[in-house]
Computed example of a mutant assay.
Amino acid sequence: MGTRKLVLTAAAVIFLLVTLAALYRLLVGFPISIGGEEVGQVSTFFVLVCGAALTLMLFNEARK
């Protein structure tokens, strides 16, 4: 059971970092382009919401 908690916690930390990066981008507003196309703020907001939800779910599951 210890390995399962470690993997879940590591995944939660990775999603937390992605969520914090999305929050930083929303606050600062620096441009990101993928394949020559600009990524909008709306996409970043969806990444923030999904990342936060996944982070919370993984931390809750690791706590059990």
Rank of each mutant, 00 (worst) to 15 (best):
M1I: 09
M1Y: 03
M1K: 10
G2S: 12
G2H: 06
G2M: 15
T3I: 13
T3D: 10
T3K: 11
R4C: 14
R4M: 08
R4L: 12
K5M: 01
L6G: 14
L6N: 12
V7I: 07
L8C: 00
L8W: 08
T9L: 01
A10V: 00
A10G: 07
A10T: 00
A11I: 04
A11H: 01
A11Y: 03
A12M: 02
A12D: 01
A12E: 01
V13P: 02
V13S: 05
I14V: 08
I14D: 07
I14Y: 02
F15C: 15
F15Y: 11
F15G: 04
L16V: 05
L16I: 06
L16T: 09
L17F: 09
V18P: 04
V18D: 14
L20R: 06
A21S: 12
A22Q: 05
A22C: 15
L23H: 03
R25Y: 03
L26V: 12
L26Q: 09
L27F: 06
L27I: 15
V28P: 01
V28S: 12
V28G: 02
V28W: 08
G29P: 01
F30R: 08
F30I: 00
P31V: 07
P31N: 12
I32A: 02
I32K: 03
I32Y: 07
S33H: 07
I34G: 13
I34P: 07
G35D: 09
G36S: 06
G36D: 10
G36M: 05
G36R: 02
G36T: 09
E37S: 12
E37I: 10
E38M: 14
V39Q: 05
V39M: 07
V39H: 02
Q41W: 14
Q41S: 15
Q41H: 10
V42D: 09
V42C: 12
V42G: 14
V42H: 13
V42S: 13
S43L: 14
T44K: 02
F45V: 08
F46W: 10
F46Q: 09
F46G: 10
V47A: 04
V47P: 01
V47H: 03
L48P: 07
L48K: 07
V49M: 08
V49L: 10
C50E: 06
C50K: 03
C50S: 14
G51F: 01
G51K: 04
A52V: 11
A52P: 02
A53K: 04
A53T: 10
L54W: 03
L54K: 01
T55K: 01
T55Q: 01
T55V: 14
T55W: 01
L56Q: 09
L56A: 05
M57E: 08
M57P: 01
L58K: 04
L58V: 02
L58R: 02
F59D: 00
F59W: 11
F59E: 00
N60C: 13
N60S: 09
N60D: 12
E61C: 07
E61R: 13
A62R: 06
A62K: 04
A62F: 04
A62P: 01
R63K: 08
R63A: 13
R63Q: 12
R63W: 03
R63V: 02
R63Y: 06
K64V: 09
